[in-house]
Nucleic acid binder design. Structure first.
Ligand SMILES: [Mn+2]
Ligand SMILES: [Mn+2]
Ligand SMILES: [Zn+2]
Ligand SMILES: [Zn+2]
Lengths: 151, 151
DNA sequence: TGCTTATTGAGAATGACTCCGAAGACTGGT
DNA sequence: ACCAGTCTTCGGAGTCATTCTCAATAAGCA
């Protein structure tokens, strides 16, 4: 299960008539080097890259996040309210799912291979080429259950 | 597995210091009477209610969709791009999941009780009070695989 | 019935995301 | 190595789903 390389990305892009760019390589490497459990928004990534001295314009970031998600390289998550977040799309055994508190947005990652297998089987039965399989559980975390504050 | 009644909603609201309103009752009944597989956006619901002669303002609809989702009555789905969609949150055996084509947004609903059970177990282990459990599979549908158009 | 305060409705405001057009830079072929 | 073709980037303008504001309304409760 070797990491996805820049040249593999280039090959896949060229195959479809698209092009490899320094921005795309930077984005790929950045996501690959992120600690586990990091979920970046477009804005987050833009700031991170600026801090690291490799700035990429926000519109390019948006364009390539979408592209890489549709290629199955990144997964697009709707965790907190209001903005999409992205992480590298790892195959099993690194593949995982998310449990989110709807009040405080506390997020727990968990693995479950049988869910992944069930998803793959379902996609296959319908002839879909699978890109991502994510189990999303919304709930109320223990501390929010104790808090008096409603909603 | 009787349907959730308006008076049950009222009880649950009052318990938290909130109020039952005609608008909330209308929204509940509308979702309950929708054919299976219907996923409404806020705008969709607003238009539907207007057509049926029971108009509710768009801001009230947004407010109550969010409220009812956080109560676990509705489930909030991010299916197509750009807007959230809602459906009634049914327990097993009506509970289901979604398989979506990232190119044409064709959506297939499917049931899988073992996934639901796995989700419930995970939430429980972390002490979360579960509100919704949805397996989201993104892929490319058979007809989009055949089409020449990229992305 | 009357008081308190949650809720509604209409419009304004917000902000995540997309679009646009000119300048720049990959790719494949010579 | 160079060139033509066109894909991509950048920055700013534009879009639109969603949230906010606040005066008017109406649940819930004693
Ligand atoms: Mn994650
Ligand atoms: Mn559905
Ligand atoms: Zn919480
Ligand atoms: Zn499709």
């Amino acid at each position: 299960m070797a990491a996805y390389t820049p040249s593999a990305l280039k090959a896949e892009l060229n195959e479809r008539g698209w092009r490899m760019t320094p921005q795309r390589e930077t984005m790929l490497k950045t996501f690959q080097n992120l600690p586990e459990g990091t979920h970046l928004s477009a804005e987050d990534l833009c700031e991170l890259l600026s801090q690291e001295g490799e700035p990429i314009s926000l519109s390019t970031i948006y364009r390539n996040l979408k592209l890489m998600a549709r290629m199955g390289i990144l997964r697009e998550l709707e965790l907190a309210e209001g903005q999409k977040r992205y992480e590298i799309n790892q195959p099993a055994p690194h593949h995982h799912h998310h449990l989110i508190c709807v009040r405080c947005n506390k997020t727990i990652e968990f693995k479950n291979d049988s869910v992944l297998k069930a998803g793959a089987k379902t996609a296959d039965r319908s002839g879909y080429h699978i890109l991502d399989c994510q189990l999303l559980i919304h709930g109320i975390c223990p501390s929010c259950q104790r808090s008096i504050v409603p909603i």
